[in-house]
Amino acid sequence: MSIQHFRVALIPFFAAFCLPVFAHPETLVKVKDAEDQLGARVGYIELDLNSGKILESFRPEERFPMMSTFKVLLCGAVLSRVDAGQEQLGRRIHYSQNDLVEYSPVTEKHLTDGMTVRELCSAAITMSDNTAANLLLTTIGGPKELTAFLHNMGDHVTRLDRWEPELNEAIPNDERDTTMPAAMATTLRKLLTGELLTLASRQQLIDWMEADKVAGPLLRSALPAGWFIADKSGAGERGSRGIIAALGPDGKPSRIVVIYTTGSQATMDERNRQIAEIGASLIKHW
């Protein structure tokens, strides 16, 4: 067993022997301040990774656009098919120029040779490549099948209805392509620590998230040296922004954090800054 596999296998073990965790309302004060600064709703939840206990939450059962955070769930569904012998990570998928959609920095470079399922998941999570996500959605049967996968996990809230990039439209009061912070946090925890996926697939999923290259201005910008984070960000229309993450000190994750916002007129930089400040408060009061 590799060191990384050992780390993920012992996530519940280490967490069980940690000192009790206590909620700190100071972080919620910052979440509410972010709402004021952005002029928009902000949803927040913080779960203990081992027990699933909610440590703090704000608007945990209000719907927010998922945006690209759905790509972690998508690759979880792909990995479940791999575990069941219905898919192979090494299978190569070929596609054409007509398949390319807006923001496809990886797939646009491989029109000639195609990409493997493993490479597509890596591109979808680490670079948020939209064509990679659409190609992977095709392998599982489309958005409705991802929703069905989530329902089978016990998540009857999260739903995907459309493809990239239309799913980022974020129309107010439109339930399409949305989740709730509580539902997303619980589902992410199941994917990373539950028995739904094999140990190898859980490790692969967290490795992809740990290698995320496009979430630097968010929670990662607030992390002290030595902290662990595996995350996936999302951005959408109407001032929408979000991030889902597993993080913790001492090089291992111990909490799940989900943050979503929508309806702001603020710039992307300002949305990023507010999420980073929430992260800084979380870490300060850990």
Rank of each mutant, 00 (worst) to 15 (best):
H24W: 10
H24D: 12
T27A: 05
L28G: 06
L28S: 06
V29Q: 14
K30A: 15
V31R: 09
V31C: 04
K32A: 09
D33K: 07
A34M: 01
E35S: 05
E35L: 11
E35A: 01
D36V: 05
Q37M: 07
L38K: 00
L38V: 01
G39L: 12
A40H: 08
V42D: 04
Y44Q: 01
Y44A: 02
I45P: 10
E46M: 08
L47F: 08
L47V: 04
L49Q: 00
G52I: 03
G52P: 08
K53H: 11
K53F: 07
I54G: 04
I54A: 05
I54P: 05
I54L: 10
L55T: 08
E56W: 06
E56R: 09
S57K: 03
F58M: 09
F58E: 03
R59N: 15
R59A: 05
P60M: 05
P60Y: 07
E62P: 08
E62Q: 14
R63T: 08
F64L: 06
F64M: 11
F64Q: 03
M66P: 04
M66S: 06
M66C: 08
M66H: 04
M67R: 07
M67V: 15
S68H: 14
S68Q: 14
T69D: 12
F70W: 15
F70N: 05
K71Y: 15
C75E: 01
G76Y: 11
V78T: 01
V78Y: 09
L79N: 00
S80R: 14
R81L: 13
R81F: 01
R81Y: 11
V82K: 02
G85K: 11
E87Q: 06
E87R: 06
E87S: 08
Q88D: 08
Q88K: 10
L89N: 04
L89T: 04
G90A: 02
G90F: 07
R92S: 09
R92H: 12
I93S: 02
Y95V: 10
S96K: 08
N98K: 12
N98Y: 15
N98H: 10
D99E: 05
L100W: 14
L100H: 12
V101Q: 13
V101N: 09
E102T: 01
E102C: 02
Y103L: 11
V106D: 10
V106C: 07
T107H: 06
E108C: 05
E108P: 10
K109R: 07
K109C: 03
H110I: 06
L111K: 05
L111C: 01
L111T: 07
L111V: 13
M115D: 11
T116S: 11
T116V: 02
R118Y: 07
R118N: 13
R118E: 07
R118I: 01
E119Q: 05
A123R: 05
A123W: 08
A124F: 07
A124W: 04
T126R: 14
D129M: 01
D129H: 01
N130I: 10
T131V: 07
T131G: 11
A133I: 06
N134F: 07
N134S: 01
L135S: 06
L136Y: 05
L137E: 03
L137Y: 00
L137K: 01
T138Q: 00
T138D: 10
T138L: 05
T139I: 12
T139R: 07
T139V: 03
T139C: 01
G141L: 04
K144P: 01
K144R: 03
E145K: 13
L146A: 02
A148W: 06
F149N: 04
H151T: 06
M153D: 05
G154E: 09
H156S: 10
T158R: 11
R159E: 15
L160F: 05
L160H: 06
D161Y: 04
D161K: 01
R162F: 01
W163K: 12
E164L: 14
P165Y: 03
P165H: 02
E166W: 09
E166I: 06
L167E: 01
E169N: 00
A170N: 07
N173V: 05
N173S: 10
E175Y: 02
D177N: 00
D177M: 00
T179P: 13
P181N: 02
A183H: 03
A183C: 07
A183K: 00
A185F: 08
L188W: 15
R189G: 14
R189D: 15
L191G: 13
L191F: 13
G194T: 11
E195V: 00
L196R: 10
L196H: 08
L197I: 08
L197W: 01
T198V: 02
T198W: 01
L199E: 08
S201T: 05
S201V: 03
S201L: 00
R202D: 02
R202C: 03
Q203A: 05
Q204R: 01
L205V: 05
L205K: 01
I206Y: 15
I206C: 13
D207F: 03
D207Y: 03
W208R: 03
M209L: 13
M209N: 02
A211D: 04
K213M: 06
K213F: 06
V214M: 15
V214G: 15
A215K: 15
G216A: 12
L218Q: 15
L218N: 14
R220Y: 10
R220A: 10
S221C: 12
S221F: 08
A222F: 13
A222I: 15
A222S: 14
P224S: 10
P224I: 09
W227E: 08
W227S: 06
I229G: 13
A230F: 11
K232G: 14
G234R: 11
A235D: 15
G236V: 08
E237I: 00
R238V: 00
R241E: 14
R241H: 15
R241V: 13
G242R: 11
I243F: 14
I244S: 12
A245K: 11
A245C: 11
A245W: 04
A246N: 12
L247P: 11
L247F: 05
L247E: 14
G248A: 06
G248H: 06
P249L: 10
K252V: 09
P253A: 08
P253Y: 09
S254C: 06
R255S: 10
I256L: 12
V258S: 05
V258N: 09
I259D: 12
Y260Q: 12
Y260P: 07
T261V: 01
G263C: 00
S264F: 03
T267Y: 05
M268T: 14
M268F: 11
D269M: 12
E270Y: 15
R271N: 06
R273C: 10
A276Q: 12
I278C: 12
I278R: 12
I278N: 15
I278S: 13
G279F: 15
G279V: 15
S281V: 08
L282M: 12
I283K: 08
I283L: 13
K284C: 03
K284H: 05
W286S: 03
